[in-house]
């Protein structure tokens, strides 16, 4: 058990579930790539939803034109916040790579068949 302040929450959020992961395609690289692509697809959808919400609110309030949005330049503080966001974003889309390297560190994972056998004894 750790102290709350010591938790690496980026790492913990993406950690794998104990139990050997099945691979589905003839080449495991396809599983790796699909997993990353789907995460990117989700984050793209998330961005699209936020943007859509923003644009609808902006239009409804008559606050901003699309041209002003195009010319946006962040200050130092905003830049730092946007950088931290990018770090979390990358850790999220590379979850699969993290989980495979965790298996490397923790050794071979538990085989479902052997657990089934154990639970049936």
């Amino acid at each position: 058990m750790s102290k709350l302040s010591e938790l690496d929450i980026l790492d913990l959020a993406g950690t794998r579930a104990k139990g050997a992961r099945p691979y589905y395609f003839s080449d495991p690289d396809s599983d790796r790539l699909l997993s990353i692509i789907m995460a990117v697809a989700m984050e793209h959808a998330v961005t699209r939803q936020r943007l859509d919400a923003l644009e609808r609110l902006i239009e409804a309030k008559g606050l901003l034109t699309r041209e002003e949005l195009e010319r946006y330049a962040p200050n130092r503080e905003a830049e730092a916040e946007r950088g931290a966001w990018t770090q979390e974003y990358i850790a999220r889309i590379l979850r699969f790579v993290q989980q495979e390297t965790e298996t490397l560190r923790d050794g071979v994972d538990v085989d479902i068949r052997s657990v089934q056998d154990e639970l049936c004894r």
């Binding site: 589905y24 396809s30 699909l34 789907m38 999220r92 699969f96």
Partner: peptide, 22 residues
């Protein structure tokens, strides 16, 4: 493809929930 997508969707769901809670 169906299985791989189903599995990876599950994994994304866990990460999404854990990131939010943590």
């Amino acid at each position: 493809m169906w299985s791989a997508l189903r599995r990876t969707t599950m994994e994304m769901r866990q990460q999404a929930g854990r990131a939010m809670v943590l």
